[in-house]
Design a protein around this nucleic acid. Structure first.
Lengths: 197, 197
DNA sequence: GGAATCACTTGACAAAAGGCAAGAAATACT
DNA sequence: AGTATTTCTTGCCTTTTGTCAAGTGATTCC
């Protein structure tokens, strides 16, 4: 038994599933069982540019980010992933195309992953898995829309305060420049905003 | 035969489906056949606040918008829908909760709709429908992410120019104030931007 | 442990965008 | 046609944010 398997206590994933979709507990446990444990060290990558993503990950603990390179070669952090959430790059994973983005662990991360082929097989064979898959897509889609709505028509200060209340872990572990590009402001502006608060 | 059925030529929907997901033509035609024709007049609503949405709509022709009321009672246009796209309010439709948003026709619109129960039944019984349903969720999710990315880290001018090239119909038919709130700027600012171009 | 790099802060100025209010232009409504 | 309403534009001034550049502090790495 490896160290990874030793700490393999999947209750958190089962609970997450039951929280997202109304299915019997045994179905949730069956879904959980089809995932594989994975661990990432600080700064390690789950996905890099030009690779076709094959990871659909339940993040049990830790903090991650997805970013890409802008026109001037600067990193733009698109989103942060916090524990007890699903992590994937939808375009590359579902459309089977090379990724334009990087997914990176900010802190040490643990979780459970499943490949595209595995996920797809379950999706077609198991009604509960299908409901789970759709529920995740719907949940993340809604989160993306909310983010849109929360960014537009708000000042940088309001956006930062909102992040502070919704994902305080990020402020604690992510460097200022990640947060600044996520909020769409320069490092200087964010630094000044912080001083005023 | 009513006027609505007379003009019922569903090829555009079948082509749309075939464009979105790789399934046999007969399966696409079967999906198409499960939709019902619908027409909306200028300014008519497909969805209003506090109602549980029951429309998953393929917009064949016309222009629509989804909006909600901000804290000061002002309308905020969240998104525009152009022809040859699927229109739905994901939160209310899939989670079966009262909508916070309005969906309104900007011009006269025609299309084909299906209810939640109908969609769900097909989703579980027909593999092709399932693939179609997921492909639409993935497609719209990606579009939402792209919009996020296209809004942040860009000036109002760049955002407007981008809209101009990607959805020129909007500039033609939607009043300035809809576009301004969509871009996250005031009417005055957008008016000035236009003059400079 | 000292050089190099990285993360963050700060100052001075410039550009972008907003607030408010007045007015012009277009549209809707008898 | 003529009034009312809505839509859009414009001027003046303020606030927000960006740019550039220098400086401080922390961290990494031979």
């Amino acid at each position: 038994m490896t160290a990874l398997e030793q700490m393999d206590n999947r209750e958190s994933l089962t609970n997450f599933i039951l929280n997202v979709v109304k299915i019997p507990k045994r179905d949730a446990e069956e879904i959980t069982a089809s995932f594989h444990p994975i661990e990432l060290k600080e700064k390690e990558f789950l996905l890099k540019e030009n690779v076709v993503s094959d990871d659909y990950l339940y993040l049990e603990s830790g903090l991650m980010r997805i970013f890409l390179y802008g026109l001037d070669g600067e990193e733009i952090t698109i989103d942060f992933f916090t524990e007890n959430n699903i992590v994937f790059e939808i375009t590359s994973f579902f459309n089977r195309v090379p990724s334009e983005a990087y997914i990176q662990a900010i802190t040490t991360c643990t979780g459970y992953r499943i490949s595209y082929d595995e996920l797809n097989a379950h999706f077609h064979n198991k009604p509960a898995f299908r409901d789970f898959g759709r529920a995740i897509l719907v949940k993340e889609f809604i989160a993306s829309q909310r983010r849109n709505y929360g960014m537009i028509n708000r000042t940088a200060k309001e956006r930062y305060q909102n992040l502070l209340t919704t994902k305080p872990q990020i402020i604690q572990y992510a460097p200022l420049k990640y947060i600044a590009s996520y909020l769409g402001v320069t490092d200087s502006t964010l630094s000044r905003l912080r001083k005023k608060m």
